[in-house]
Simulated scan of single mutants.
Amino acid sequence: MKKLLLAGVLLLGPLNMPAGPVSAAAETRLSQSEVRFENEFRKLWLDHVLWTSNYITSATTAGAEDQQQVLARLLRNQEDLGNAVKPVYGEKGGNQLTALLKEHIVIAGKLVDAAKAGQTASVNQLNKEWHQNASDLAAFLSGANPYLKDEDLKKLLFMHLELVANDLSASLKKDWEARITAIDEGVTHIILMADTISAGVVKQFPEKFQG
Protein backbone atom coordinates (compact mmCIF):
# COMPACT_ATOMS: atom_id res chain seq x y z
CA MET A 1 0.00 0.00 0.00
CA LYS A 2 2.83 2.43 0.85
CA LYS A 3 4.42 1.74 -2.53
CA LEU A 4 1.17 2.45 -4.35
CA LEU A 5 0.65 5.66 -2.37
CA LEU A 6 4.17 6.73 -3.26
CA ALA A 7 3.48 5.98 -6.93
CA GLY A 8 0.39 8.15 -6.73
CA VAL A 9 2.38 11.03 -5.26
CA LEU A 10 4.97 10.67 -7.99
CA LEU A 11 2.32 10.80 -10.68
CA LEU A 12 0.89 13.99 -9.24
CA GLY A 13 4.25 15.75 -9.45
CA PRO A 14 5.56 18.47 -7.13
CA LEU A 15 3.13 20.41 -4.97
CA ASN A 16 2.81 24.18 -5.34
CA MET A 17 5.00 26.04 -2.85
CA PRO A 18 3.51 28.88 -0.79
CA ALA A 19 4.43 32.47 -1.65
CA GLY A 20 7.29 33.99 0.32
CA PRO A 21 11.08 34.10 0.45
CA VAL A 22 12.87 31.65 -1.83
CA SER A 23 13.73 28.52 0.10
CA ALA A 24 16.08 25.65 -0.69
CA ALA A 25 13.05 23.60 -1.73
CA ALA A 26 11.92 26.33 -4.13
CA GLU A 27 15.39 26.59 -5.61
CA THR A 28 15.31 22.90 -6.49
CA ARG A 29 11.79 23.00 -7.91
CA LEU A 30 11.52 20.99 -11.10
CA SER A 31 11.19 22.85 -14.37
CA GLN A 32 8.14 22.30 -16.56
CA SER A 33 10.24 20.63 -19.24
CA GLU A 34 11.72 18.20 -16.72
CA VAL A 35 8.32 17.32 -15.29
CA ARG A 36 6.94 16.86 -18.80
CA PHE A 37 9.79 14.57 -19.85
CA GLU A 38 9.66 12.47 -16.68
CA ASN A 39 5.87 12.09 -16.82
CA GLU A 40 5.84 11.19 -20.52
CA PHE A 41 8.69 8.72 -20.04
CA ARG A 42 6.88 7.16 -17.08
CA LYS A 43 3.68 6.82 -19.12
CA LEU A 44 5.55 5.02 -21.91
CA TRP A 45 6.95 2.48 -19.46
CA LEU A 46 3.53 2.04 -17.87
CA ASP A 47 2.20 1.35 -21.38
CA HIS A 48 5.01 -1.19 -21.76
CA VAL A 49 3.78 -3.14 -18.72
CA LEU A 50 0.09 -2.82 -19.47
CA TRP A 51 0.30 -3.80 -23.16
CA THR A 52 2.63 -6.70 -22.27
CA SER A 53 -0.01 -7.89 -19.82
CA ASN A 54 -2.72 -7.42 -22.46
CA TYR A 55 -0.66 -9.53 -24.86
CA ILE A 56 -0.38 -12.30 -22.27
CA THR A 57 -4.17 -12.22 -21.94
CA SER A 58 -4.65 -12.45 -25.71
CA ALA A 59 -2.06 -15.17 -26.18
CA THR A 60 -3.30 -17.40 -23.36
CA THR A 61 -7.05 -17.00 -23.82
CA ALA A 62 -8.73 -19.55 -26.05
CA GLY A 63 -10.55 -17.92 -28.93
CA ALA A 64 -8.96 -14.49 -28.48
CA GLU A 65 -8.89 -12.69 -31.83
CA ASP A 66 -6.81 -9.59 -31.02
CA GLN A 67 -3.37 -11.13 -30.44
CA GLN A 68 -1.73 -9.67 -33.55
CA GLN A 69 -3.26 -6.24 -33.04
CA VAL A 70 -2.13 -6.13 -29.42
CA LEU A 71 1.35 -7.26 -30.44
CA ALA A 72 1.55 -4.48 -33.03
CA ARG A 73 0.57 -1.92 -30.37
CA LEU A 74 3.14 -3.36 -27.96
CA LEU A 75 5.90 -3.13 -30.56
CA ARG A 76 4.91 0.47 -31.31
CA ASN A 77 5.46 1.23 -27.64
CA GLN A 78 9.11 0.21 -28.05
CA GLU A 79 9.42 2.69 -30.91
CA ASP A 80 7.89 5.39 -28.71
CA LEU A 81 10.43 4.68 -25.97
CA GLY A 82 13.30 4.93 -28.44
CA ASN A 83 11.91 8.17 -29.85
CA ALA A 84 11.64 9.61 -26.33
CA VAL A 85 15.43 9.55 -25.89
CA LYS A 86 16.39 10.74 -29.38
CA PRO A 87 16.52 14.41 -28.27
CA VAL A 88 19.41 13.50 -25.95
CA TYR A 89 20.99 10.38 -27.49
CA GLY A 90 20.35 11.08 -31.15
CA GLU A 91 18.72 9.08 -33.92
CA LYS A 92 21.20 6.21 -33.65
CA GLY A 93 20.88 5.93 -29.88
CA GLY A 94 17.09 6.02 -29.98
CA ASN A 95 16.96 3.39 -32.71
CA GLN A 96 19.35 1.16 -30.77
CA LEU A 97 17.14 1.35 -27.69
CA THR A 98 14.08 0.49 -29.80
CA ALA A 99 15.89 -2.49 -31.34
CA LEU A 100 16.86 -3.87 -27.92
CA LEU A 101 13.35 -3.36 -26.58
CA LYS A 102 11.77 -5.04 -29.59
CA GLU A 103 14.09 -7.99 -29.06
CA HIS A 104 12.88 -8.05 -25.45
CA ILE A 105 9.27 -8.28 -26.71
CA VAL A 106 9.98 -10.89 -29.39
CA ILE A 107 11.66 -13.16 -26.85
CA ALA A 108 8.78 -12.62 -24.43
CA GLY A 109 6.31 -13.64 -27.14
CA LYS A 110 8.24 -16.85 -27.78
CA LEU A 111 8.33 -17.50 -24.03
CA VAL A 112 4.56 -17.17 -23.83
CA ASP A 113 4.10 -19.68 -26.65
CA ALA A 114 6.63 -22.15 -25.19
CA ALA A 115 5.15 -21.92 -21.68
CA LYS A 116 1.62 -22.37 -23.04
CA ALA A 117 2.79 -25.50 -24.90
CA GLY A 118 4.58 -26.86 -21.82
CA GLN A 119 7.98 -26.84 -23.56
CA THR A 120 10.21 -26.61 -20.50
CA ALA A 121 13.53 -26.82 -22.33
CA SER A 122 12.54 -24.02 -24.69
CA VAL A 123 11.31 -21.89 -21.79
CA ASN A 124 14.64 -22.27 -20.02
CA GLN A 125 16.64 -21.37 -23.13
CA LEU A 126 14.45 -18.39 -23.93
CA ASN A 127 14.68 -17.20 -20.34
CA LYS A 128 18.48 -17.13 -20.68
CA GLU A 129 18.18 -15.11 -23.90
CA TRP A 130 15.69 -12.79 -22.19
CA HIS A 131 18.09 -12.07 -19.34
CA GLN A 132 20.96 -11.56 -21.79
CA ASN A 133 18.85 -9.01 -23.62
CA ALA A 134 18.16 -7.26 -20.30
CA SER A 135 21.91 -7.20 -19.64
CA ASP A 136 22.42 -5.70 -23.09
CA LEU A 137 19.83 -3.02 -22.32
CA ALA A 138 21.58 -2.20 -19.05
CA ALA A 139 24.94 -2.03 -20.81
CA PHE A 140 23.55 0.30 -23.49
CA LEU A 141 21.93 2.69 -21.01
CA SER A 142 24.85 2.74 -18.59
CA GLY A 143 27.27 3.18 -21.49
CA ALA A 144 25.31 6.19 -22.72
CA ASN A 145 24.88 7.76 -19.28
CA PRO A 146 27.50 7.93 -16.50
CA TYR A 147 24.76 8.50 -13.91
CA LEU A 148 23.16 5.12 -14.67
CA LYS A 149 25.05 2.17 -13.21
CA ASP A 150 25.07 -1.14 -15.04
CA GLU A 151 24.44 -3.33 -11.98
CA ASP A 152 21.60 -1.12 -10.74
CA LEU A 153 19.92 -1.24 -14.14
CA LYS A 154 20.32 -5.00 -14.41
CA LYS A 155 18.62 -5.46 -11.05
CA LEU A 156 15.73 -3.28 -12.16
CA LEU A 157 15.40 -5.02 -15.52
CA PHE A 158 15.69 -8.51 -14.06
CA MET A 159 12.93 -7.68 -11.58
CA HIS A 160 10.79 -6.48 -14.49
CA LEU A 161 11.31 -9.86 -16.18
CA GLU A 162 10.42 -11.68 -12.98
CA LEU A 163 7.18 -9.78 -12.61
CA VAL A 164 6.18 -10.38 -16.24
CA ALA A 165 6.95 -14.08 -15.73
CA ASN A 166 4.74 -14.06 -12.63
CA ASP A 167 1.94 -12.55 -14.71
CA LEU A 168 2.33 -15.26 -17.35
CA SER A 169 2.54 -18.08 -14.81
CA ALA A 170 -0.58 -16.92 -12.98
CA SER A 171 -2.43 -16.57 -16.29
CA LEU A 172 -1.60 -20.12 -17.35
CA LYS A 173 -2.68 -21.43 -13.94
CA LYS A 174 -5.80 -19.24 -14.01
CA ASP A 175 -4.81 -17.94 -10.59
CA TRP A 176 -6.47 -14.55 -11.04
CA GLU A 177 -5.65 -13.18 -7.60
CA ALA A 178 -1.95 -13.94 -8.15
CA ARG A 179 -2.17 -12.31 -11.54
CA ILE A 180 -3.66 -9.13 -10.12
CA THR A 181 -0.81 -9.03 -7.60
CA ALA A 182 1.78 -9.52 -10.35
CA ILE A 183 0.33 -6.72 -12.45
CA ASP A 184 0.07 -4.34 -9.49
CA GLU A 185 3.68 -5.05 -8.52
CA GLY A 186 4.75 -4.69 -12.14
CA VAL A 187 3.17 -1.24 -12.38
CA THR A 188 4.76 -0.05 -9.14
CA HIS A 189 8.15 -1.39 -10.17
CA ILE A 190 8.09 0.10 -13.66
CA ILE A 191 7.45 3.56 -12.21
CA LEU A 192 10.60 3.17 -10.12
CA MET A 193 12.58 1.99 -13.15
CA ALA A 194 11.29 4.75 -15.42
CA ASP A 195 12.03 7.43 -12.85
CA THR A 196 15.54 6.06 -12.26
CA ILE A 197 16.35 6.31 -15.97
CA SER A 198 14.72 9.71 -16.52
CA ALA A 199 16.47 11.15 -13.45
CA GLY A 200 19.79 10.01 -14.89
CA VAL A 201 18.98 11.64 -18.23
CA VAL A 202 18.05 14.94 -16.59
CA LYS A 203 21.23 14.87 -14.51
CA GLN A 204 23.33 14.19 -17.61
CA PHE A 205 21.71 16.94 -19.70
CA PRO A 206 20.55 19.64 -17.25
CA GLU A 207 20.72 22.34 -19.92
CA LYS A 208 17.97 20.59 -21.91
CA PHE A 209 15.53 20.78 -18.99
CA GLN A 210 15.90 24.36 -17.81
CA GLY A 211 12.83 25.79 -19.52
Rank of each mutant, 00 (worst) to 15 (best):
A99R: 07
L71P: 00
Q125P: 09
D113P: 14
S171D: 00
L44W: 07
L50A: 15
L148F: 06
A144E: 13
M17E: 05
Q119G: 08
G63Q: 04
G118Q: 10
A19D: 14
G109Q: 09
K43P: 00
E38Y: 00
I191S: 08
P21N: 11
G211Q: 15
L5R: 02
G118L: 15
K203P: 15
A117D: 13
L172V: 02
L172H: 01
G90S: 02
I105L: 02
T181S: 10
A165Y: 03
K203G: 11
Q78W: 05
E177F: 07
T196M: 07
D152P: 02
P14I: 01
A194M: 12
P146N: 05
P21T: 04
F205N: 03
L157Y: 09
L50D: 01
P14R: 03
K174F: 05
H189W: 15
T61I: 01
L168K: 00
L148K: 07
G63P: 09
K208M: 07
P21K: 09
L141M: 09
D150I: 13
Y89N: 06
R36E: 14
G200D: 05
R73H: 10
F37C: 07
A134Y: 08
A26Q: 13
L71M: 10
D80P: 03
A182Q: 04
F37M: 14
A99E: 13
Q68Y: 09
H131I: 04
E207F: 08
M1R: 01
H160F: 06
G200V: 10
S33A: 08
M17W: 15
V49H: 12
D195E: 08
K3V: 11
E65T: 14
